[in-house]
Nucleic acid binder design. Structure first.
Lengths: 333, 333
DNA sequence: GTTAGCACTCGGTACACTCGACTGCTACCG
DNA sequence: CGGTAGCAGTCGAGTGTACCGAGTGCTAAC
């Protein structure tokens, strides 16, 4: 473990580096609050911190820069959580007061809110429909051979699937299948649907079976929805254009983003730094996440992505506040 | 107008510059096919082209670079439209053979297809629902004070709006409103709905009125859907990171993208170069667009966005092919 | 244990210089 | 008279050198 003085020095280095993006030298650290020793002493301590892997020197005659391990220590030993500046609190309040409309609209707007608050890229993973209650389910005829299965859930989301119909399923079959499914599925939980008994009519049962199959498996091309806001800020975070490109490429793959966030949450982390994200192209990035709830149940995840030298206290505060407010909002309906 | 030789020289400069991104000198042009004069003659002609505003010199001792006017002439005087390379044709065929599922999924995938074909950023604007036929319309109760209006259209799209209910509207009112709207709106065109007569029950009529209002105005926070694919390629197109940031910022504003494309189409253009786009941050960008149809009716727009020095013939060919295939696909159902 | 002092390292900047890819001009040629 | 070869001139990019300054590690003194 680090003694108090080493910790203070490390903290000063991280804070200064986050601020200036320049390697920080012993003189700057000695001038920082919380460190009341001379630059020479700081140098000695920094040499130790470097030996222990918390800091590194870009070149011999430069200041020190935090390593992943250094950032990790920093976030693990933050003093009491920082409060958000009033301006941001107001922005959040104003946002949740103003935003109405569909869930998806709101989540997309939330990702932009996160981005605005932190100057990073905001990410919002929509609630999985697993535990939503079916409020309505119906088949709608589109053409002679295709119908659309539309399911409406208690959380205001709508799920739809195209169903191919065998020739000859007439309007009445579609109506029968709709009625049958409504009778047996309305009020049940999406992923805990009871078995639906046969109707006796083979063609109707076929339609029902196709519908249930569509609902059952989450097809590969319909990943959970994820909203990414403020990708443009990635272009400011790095000066290596190649890094920007790689990160954008990742953010475009919704499935990857979803599993990335889920993975971090599953490991019980709030912050993933560099290689902790498990993705090589994100080696220079860090991710701050928080789950949000609906009626007390873990529903989805929000987070921000930025360079490893991001303002962690601010990001943590923003993500926490937004997650709370979002939970409230989605719970009250 | 330009004489044949000047045109050939301009063409050679544009093609070479698109290829190399380097200012091109008289020697290169003289070596190009279609130009059979000495570098000295080329120099004379290029001086003329510069005076006429088709070319410019970054600095005295450098080669020439096309201006906006130069690109414009180039695309306006393309020889017969270039065919797509076989590899791309196969990719398109394979794509439309493989892709199934919901319209939105497919359009999102199409934007990625465009991006892959051209190495630029792909954009797809979803069909406006204006001329779709209502297949089903229903109100679903979400809570004591909110219901969800769900409308299913013949093109497989679903529209939904949250409706706030005055206290006391019970389940039976919702059912009555649903039945009433179904009876009068099913089979009608979205934006040409006939007036719905009163039911006689004030509370039911109130629900119907709220529903129609929600359907009627396209609210500001629900712009037409637009899918953008391959934003990461923007980061390769420019080396000025600031340009990348500005362009990404534009692409994040769905509303801006939609009106940008619409504007270009409305002006009867297929290609908008630099300031022709009407957006200052896109001064270094060009946009290639094409509309697509559903059953012969203009439905939406696709396009690619890239740097002004993009491969125009390739982009035009890709956009045209994809637009045709997409029209076929959406028309056949 | 802490600190002042000092020699040393090394990236960044400024500057001079060269190199090479251009151009525009002029004179010549068919 | 249009086209071409030759030539002087321009200017950016690349290179070598010197210098400066921020920052370090070490040592000796407090």
């Amino acid at each position: 473990m680090l003694d108090e003085r080493k910790a203070a020095i490390l903290r000063a280095v991280v804070e200064e580096y986050i601020d200036t993006a320049q390697p920080v030298g012993s003189a700057h650290v000695a001038g920082a609050s919380g460190v009341d020793v001379s630059p020479a002493t700081v140098r000695n301590e920094m040499a130790g911190l470097e030996a222990d892997g918390y800091l590194r020197q870009p070149h011999t005659s430069a200041g020190r820069v935090p390593t992943e391990k250094g950032y990790r220590f920093f976030v693990d030993h933050l003093r009491e959580p920082v409060r958000l500046p009033n301006r941001s609190v107001d922005e959040v309040r104003e946002f949740f007061g103003r935003t109405h409309g569909e869930v998806e609209q709101m989540l997309a707007a939330t990702s932009r809110l996160l981005s605005n608050l932190t100057n990073l890229t905001g990410v919002v993973v929509a609630p999985g429909p697993a535990d939503a209650v079916v409020r309505s389910i119906q088949l709608v005829t589109l053409s002679a051979t295709a119908a659309l299965l539309v399911a409406v859930y208690s959380d205001g989301t709508v799920e739809k699937h195209t169903i191919e119909m065998p020739d000859g399923s007439g309007e009445e079959r579609v109506a029968a299948a709709t009625a049958h499914m409504s009778a047996h599925l309305a009020g049940t939980v999406r992923d805990a649907a009871p078995p639906v008994p046969a109707t006796g009519d083979a063609a109707t049962d076929d339609l029902v079976a196709r519908s249930l199959a569509a609902l059952g498996g989450r097809p590969d091309d319909d990943p959970e929805h994820v909203f990414v806001g403020g990708t443009a800020r990635m272009a400011q975070a790095f000066d290596a254009i190649e890094t920007v490109r790689e990160v954008l490429a990742i953010l475009e793959q919704q499935f990857v983003v979803v599993s990335l966030l889920r993975d971090v949450i599953d490991r019980g982390l709030h912050v993933a730094i560099g290689t902790e994200t498990g993705m090589a192209p994100l080696a220079e990035c860090a991710l701050v996440v928080a789950p949000y709830d609906i009626e007390g149940e873990r529903a989805g995840t929000i987070g921000v992505l930025g360079p490893t030298r991001m303002n962690y206290p601010q990001a943590l505060a923003a993500v926490a506040v937004v997650s709370n407010r979002l939970s409230d909002r989605l719970t009250e309906g």
